[in-house]
Design a protein around this nucleic acid. Structure first.
Lengths: 231, 231
DNA sequence: GTGTATAACTGTTCTAGAACTCAGTTCTAG
DNA sequence: CTAGAACTGAGTTCTAGAACAGTTATACAC
């Protein structure tokens, strides 16, 4: 398993951005500087930078420099990833705080807050119906992601359906996100299904609007009937 | 205005795909073959192919070849559609009210309101930079869609990038939508690009949150995204 | 027949440069 | 004092190779 140099470099730079060695708005060292520092050609280094640019981590300006993208975390709807995976991909340091785990109805209710650095950005309530709920009730959800736990329990997720509307921040979620009520937020309702079309997770997430945005990229062939991407 | 070789080549190949010289599923000539044919290095040719891959026109498989992407909707303008086409598809009666058409900056500024029945739901400001703006300045935008007008003017759109955030309704848009300020809305910013990566349309839309929602269906290999009316 | 090397394709990664364009800055002539 | 020219340092494009890695068909051995 050989990892190409440009991927190593991209991963290293993404890490440096995530850990704050290079902060949003900062200029990265010049391409020639970085290429000698990593001991590769300019060509190879540029391949690494392109990866970072595709992931939205950096902005390049001819004649000026390469800059770390400002912190507007993007929620790309064109992939089958969770919030957290999406954000990690973009070099963000995401942590999870478990507010409560409890049996509710015929299932398990999980209330979590996602933090970007110190700032809570997402309040998420997940309901996992039986028989899946009890299979994963003992997990430590601060360490393990819900999807990992379900995968470990032998549950294969095949599709998800999501509905997003804008809304206003209200109590008590406002308190969890440490923001005043009345701010603009996304409200996302998502249901995830197993192979037998049984719902596995029913999610409701409140997402801070000034810290998160939805980004969609569309290109000709990647679309099918209705703004659909095939990959 | 110097056009880099790799863009010329990408445009040429895209054209050959669009006109059916290479048909969906076909293998393109090998990279080395194409590089000598166009008289450039393998590196330069690969830059051209990467552009086509980013636009979803081709698929590359190590050891097998480069293939024209299957689902052929390639370069059909109506696949890069927006709110209105999405809603019409769902059987809604969408009408357009043109608020103003004026030259602004180096381009054309178009302000429109979209109505669902009698109710205005979207306020949209479009800016079409030169040289595209003047080509379509004489259109009647109540009849003709912006994308139709551009297609008629010979502009080929290859991709669009969209950014959506939640917001609060403010004046003067609130007046156009006949709603009080302070309501929850989507704010969508969308830029549409031509083959040469030049922006063709820069859009900003304010969408009523209680009447519209975003729906996403995700499966392992496919995602569909559409604007829908809230129920 | 059945397997398995291997040759000959394919795309992928990388080197070591050179020349170019773009955006600021600084110097200079008027 | 200012307009413009020259300079500087950044990203961009390109050449001419070489080596690597995945895929497929075929020829040879069993």
């Amino acid at each position: 398993m050989k990892i190409p140099a440009y991927r190593r470099i991209a991963a290293d730079l993404a890490d440096k951005i995530r850990t704050g060695v290079y902060r949003p708005g900062d200029a990265l060292p010049a391409q020639r500087e970085l290429s000698t520092r990593y001991g590769v050609t300019l060509m190879t280094l540029r391949q690494a930078l392109q990866q970072l640019r595709d992931d939205g981590l950096i902005l390049q300006q001819a004649g000026r420099g390469t800059f770390v993208a400002p912190v507007q975390a993007a929620y790309r709807v064109d992939t089958l990833r969770s919030f957290v995976e999406d954000l990690r991909e973009q070099g963000h340091d995401v942590t999870t705080e478990v507010i409560s785990v409890a049996a509710e109805g015929a299932g398990l209710r999980l209330e979590r807050v996602r933090l970007l650095g110190d700032q809570p950005v997402i309040h998420q309530t997940s309901w996992i119906p039986e028989p899946y709920g009890s299979r994963i009730a003992d997990e430590n959800f601060r360490r393990t992601s819900l999807y990992e736990a379900l995968a470990d329990a032998g549950v294969t997720i095949v599709r998800a359906s999501e509905r997003i509307v804008p809304g206003l921040l209200t109590e008590p979620v406002a308190g969890h996100l440490r923001r005043p009520a009345g701010e603009a937020v996304f409200v996302s309702e998502r249901t995830t299904y197993a192979m037998d079309e049984q719902p596995v997770v029913v999610d409701r997430a409140v997402i801070l609007g000034d810290l998160m945005e939805i980004r969609a990229e569309r290109a000709a062939t990647r679309l099918s009937l209705q703004w659909a991407t095939a990959e």
